[in-house]
Nucleic acid binder design. Structure first.
Length: 226
DNA sequence: CCAGACGTTGTT
DNA sequence: GTCTGG
DNA sequence: CCAGACGTTGTT
DNA sequence: GTCTGG
């Protein structure tokens, strides 16, 4: 699953790869983004754009968006049956520099690329139009089976899209969803690493560079026992 | 065809 | 919006 | 995801 | 335990 992530770095390369022409984002570094909070999202609507959207999908047809929508993740395998419309037309990418998963003892671990480079999670977005307020734009993160790195602590992980597939994923002209199936796979284990971080990360209010600090000086990417 | 309900995840 | 029931 | 709050009834 | 807020 994916219940926290970070957007602390610079995602200019990802925006370029996605051919983002228009963006309006917060410049604030975020080390610990929790559901219900705003995050940068790249999507295609007459061109690639990058804007802040709220994490937790509120679909366009719901009557009451305030009444909690817990849709922070959606399973890749359920997309064949559910959310077909959004999967066809409202795919998005969430640029991140890492995400967090918890052991059953609530020990958080940070997962990232071996070379610390930014990467992109696959998501779906929607827009809820209010008669008297500005439109509410929200997103959800697609999950798939865990790879071998994550499996010891969790059986799900977010879908991570390779940079070569960004444009295909964002292309709203692609309606044959079987063409996208290969993207919805666990990301290669060998390209990722993880390490334990402070339990301060558990608190959604805690948002500081300390979130990235390894809890122990050695033990990175070692076999993890909990 | 229309009317009416409706959205997910995880349980490491 | 999509899906189901009638 | 985690942290933290949380309890009901009646209003012919 | 469930629900809400971040």
């Amino acid at each position: 699953m994916c219940g926290r992530f970070s957007q602390a770095g610079d995602f200019e390369k990802i925006r370029t790869d996605c051919k983002v022409t228009e963006y309006n984002i917060s410049t604030e570094a975020r080390y610990n983004i929790a559901p219900s909070q705003s995050a940068q999202v790249i999507f295609n609507e007459s061109g690639s754009k990058c804007v802040m959207m709220k994490w937790g999908l509120v679909q366009s047809w719901v009557r009451c968006p305030e009444v909690g929508n817990r849709l922070i993740n959606i399973r890749a395998d359920s997309l064949k049956e559910k959310q077909k419309g959004l999967f066809k037309n409202h795919r998005c990418l969430i640029p991140v520099d890492g995400f967090y998963e918890w052991t059953k003892y609530k020990q958080p671990l940070r997962f990232l690329m071996n070379d610390d480079s930014p990467f992109a999670l696959a998501g779906l977005w929607d827009r809820w139009n209010s008669p008297d307020r500005s439109p509410l734009e929200t997103f959800t993160v697609i999950t798939t089976e865990a790879n071998e790195l994550i499996a010891p602590i969790h059986n799900r992980m977010p879908v991570i899209v390779s940079s070569k597939d960004y444009l295909l994923w964002l292309d709203t002209n692609v309606k044959d969803l079987s063409l996208l199936d290969f993207i919805l796979k666990p990301f290669p284990t060998g390209k990722m690493r993880c390490y334990k971080v402070s339990r301060s990360v558990n608190n959604a209010q805690f948002d500081s560079p300390e979130c990235f600090k390894p809890l122990e000086s050695n033990g990175n990417n070692m076999e993890l026992k909990f």
